[in-house]
Design a protein around this nucleic acid. Structure first.
Lengths: 106, 106
DNA sequence: GTGTAATACATCGTATCACGAGGTATTAGA
DNA sequence: TCTAATACCTCGTGATACGATGTATTACAC
C-alpha cells in the first residue's frame, strides 16, 4: 500500500489495536498485519508520539523473564478514533470525486 | 481535515481535477475546494512532482495577456488513478478494522 | 551444547512532503 | 489610485515513515 495513503491511518490503527485490550509492540504489529504492515521502527515512533499526545499510557511488566511495555488507550485516544470516523465521511466524498472524474467525461 | 490523511489523496485529486479537461493551477484549486482545500505552494509542489513522474504534461498558453500553464493528464496519470481505486478497497478494510475495534469490545 | 529463529525492545539518519511566508506581474473594478 | 483577484513561483521548516542497526532473552532443532 502506498506510503502516503497509510500516513493518516497509522496512528488511528495503532489506537484501534489497543482499544479493546492493552497490548505491546510486537503483538500490535502482528494484529495489524492482516490490515496493514508496519515496521518496528515505525511502530515505536508512533507509540512515542501517541504517548506524548497523551492518547495512551505505558506500563512495563515482566513476562517470561522478558520485559514488555503494555500500552493502554486513554479518553483522548478514544476521541481520536471518533474524530477519524467523522473524517471518513470527507474521505468518501473525495474518493467519489476522484472516482467520478476518473470514469465519466463531462 | 487532518494533514496526514490528506497526503495520500492530494496527488490523485489533482490528477482527477485535470482528467476530463486540461486545467491550470488557479482553476485546479478552485475546482478542488469543495472537496479539499490546498494552498498554492502545495499545489505547485504537487504539479512539479507529477510532471517529474510523467503523470502529466505542461503547455503554456496566453490568456488575456496573462500566461497560463495548462496541465494534461498522461496514460501513466490515468493508471495512477486506477491504482488508487484498487487501493481504496484496502483503505475500506482498514477503516472497518478501526471502526469495529472502536465500537465493540471483544 | 551450539546455532538459529523468534520475541521484544530501542536509536539514528535519510528522504519525502505539505505548507506558510514571501515574491513577481497583470487585469478589473471601486 | 488603490485594492482585490488572477496567475505564477521559491525557500525553509517541521513532521514523519522506514531501513539499518543494535541489545538481550527464550525456544527449539541438530
Amino acid at each position: 500500500m502506498d506510503v502516503q495513503l497509510k500516513r493518516g491511518l497509522l496512528d488511528v490503527c495503532v489506537l484501534a489495536a489497543i482499544k479493546s485490550e492493552d497490548s505491546y509492540g510486537y503483538k500490535i504489529i502482528k494484529d495489524m498485519k492482516p490490515y496493514m504492515e508496519l515496521s518496528e521502527s515505525t511502530l515505536y515512533t508512533i507509540l512515542k508520539r501517541l504517548e506524548g499526545a497523551e492518547m495512551l499510557t505505558v506500563r512495563t511488566a515482566a513476562h517470561d523473564g522478558r520485559l514488555r511495555k503494555y500500552y493502554r488507550i486513554t479518553a483522548a485516544g478514544c476521541r481520536r478514533i471518533e474524530e477519524f470516523k467523522s473524517e471518513w465521511a470527507e474521505m468518501m466524498s473525495i474518493y467519489q470525486f476522484v472516482s467520478r472524474e476518473g470514469d465519466e467525461h463531462a
